[in-house]
Design a protein around this nucleic acid. Structure first.
Length: 278
DNA sequence: AACACCCCCTGTCGGC
DNA sequence: TGCCGACAGGGGGTGT
C-alpha cells in the first residue's frame, strides 16, 4: 500500500511505540527481505535508545542513541503492527507470529513492534552516522511535496527539461519524492492534467511555471494532506479515490460526464478521465 | 536522458 | 470446484 501518506502513518505509529524507549532485542525470522540484513544488524540495534522516527519520501529512519540510523522501506506490502504486552510477560513464542512477520522489535516499554511483508520488497539496513548524507538513493531524492520550500518554481526546474510524460515524471522520485501510482493519478485528475502530457509543457521556455503547474502543485498537496487526514478513520474503501482503480466509472467531476479510463504507462496502470484531463 | 523491458515475491481475483 | 494468467500502491537493473 505504502505511498507517502501511508508511510507517514506508519511513522507516527512507530514514533509512539518506540521514541524515547530502548530496543531490548530484535528477532529476525529470516536472513533477508529484498536485501540481506547486515550481519551485525541485531548487535547494533539491541540495547539502543530510539531518539525518534523520521520519514523521507517513502523511507523511514529511526535514529538511535549510538548515532546509527535504522533505514526501513516498506516496499509494496510491508506494514508494522504494534502489540502492547505486560512487561513481566515472557517473550512471545515463535508460534504466535504469522508467516510473513519477518522482524520483531521488543521495546523496553513492553511494546512489541512486528514488521510484516508478504512480498518482501521491503528492506531494513543500518547506516552509520554520515552515511545518511552519502546514501546513493536517499541523496538523489527530490523535494518533499509537503515541505514549505516545495513550490511551483521548484517543480518547474525539474520538469523543464523532461520530455517524458507527466505521469512518468511525477513517479520519478528524483523529481518529487513520495508520490506513487495512486496519488499521481489522483493529483493529475484534480489538476485536470492529462497523464500523457509532456512534463516540460508545464513550464515556459525560460523554466518559469505556467498556471497549470501551480494548480498541479496545489493538487499534489491537497491529495496527500487529505490522505493523511483520512487514514485514521475506517476505510470507505470504495470512494477513497476519485480515479484510481475506477476504470469504467463515471468521472466524479461535476458536469464532466466522462468515463474513467485505464491505460498502461511504463508498465503500470494509469487511471484518468480523457474528457476533463488535458 | 529516456524508454522498454526484465527482475525481485506472494496473494488475490476474474475467467474458463 | 480448481487451475491459470493477469495484476498489485515498491525499487532497481539492463540494453537500445
Amino acid at each position: 500500500m505504502p505511498e507517502l501518506p501511508e508511510v507517514e502513518y506508519e511513522r507516527k505509529r512507530l514514533q509512539r511505540a518506540m521514541a524515547g524507549a530502548r530496543i531490548r532485542d530484535v528477532i529476525l525470522r529470516r536472513a533477508n527481505l529484498r536485501y540481506a540484513f547486515p550481519s551485525d544488524f541485531v548487535r547494533r540495534l539491541a540495547g539502543q535508545r530510539v531518539r525518534g522516527v523520521a520519514r523521507r519520501a517513502k523511507y523511514l529512519l529511526a535514529e538511535l542513541g549510538s548515532g546509527d540510523v535504522l533505514l526501513m522501506h516498506l516496499g509494496m506490502s510491508g506494514s508494522f503492527r504494534v502489540v502492547h504486552r505486560n512487561t513481566r510477560e515472557r517473550v512471545p513464542d515463535e508460534g504466535r507470529y504469522n508467516l510473513h512477520d519477518h522482524v520483531i522489535f521488543e521495546v523496553s516499554t513492553g511494546a512489541i513492534v512486528v514488521f510484516n511483508d508478504p512480498r518482501r520488497f521491503g528492506f531494513m539496513t543500518l547506516l552509520a552516522p554520515g552515511e545518511v548524507d552519502t546514501h546513493a538513493t536517499l541523496g538523489r531524492l527530490g523535494p518533499e511535496p509537503l515541505a514549505p520550500r516545495f513550490d511551483a518554481s521548484a517543480l518547474a526546474k525539474e520538469l523543464r527539461q523532461r520530455r517524458t510524460t507527466l505521469k512518468a515524471a511525477l513517479l520519478d522520485q528524483r523529481v518529487i519524492a513520495g508520490l506513487g501510482n495512486i496519488y499521481v493519478c489522483e493529483a493529475l485528475h484534480r489538476a485536470r492534467l492529462s497523464p500523457l502530457r509532456r512534463a516540460s509543457t508545464l513550464t515556459t521556455q525560460a523554466g518559469e511555471p505556467r498556471p497549470a503547474l501551480n494548480l498541479l502543485v496545489q493538487a499534489i498537496r491537497e491529495v496527500l494532506k487529505e490522505a493523511i487526514r483520512n487514514q485514521n478513520r475506517p476505510g470507505g474503501d470504495d470512494d477513497r479515490f476519485r480515479v484510481y482503480d475506477r476504470e469504467g466509472r463515471r468521472c466524479p467531476r461535476r458536469g464532466c460526464g466522462g468515463t474513467i479510463t485505464r491505460i498502461v504507462q511504463g508498465g503500470r496502470s494509469t487511471f484518468y478521465c480523457p474528457v476533463c484531463q488535458s
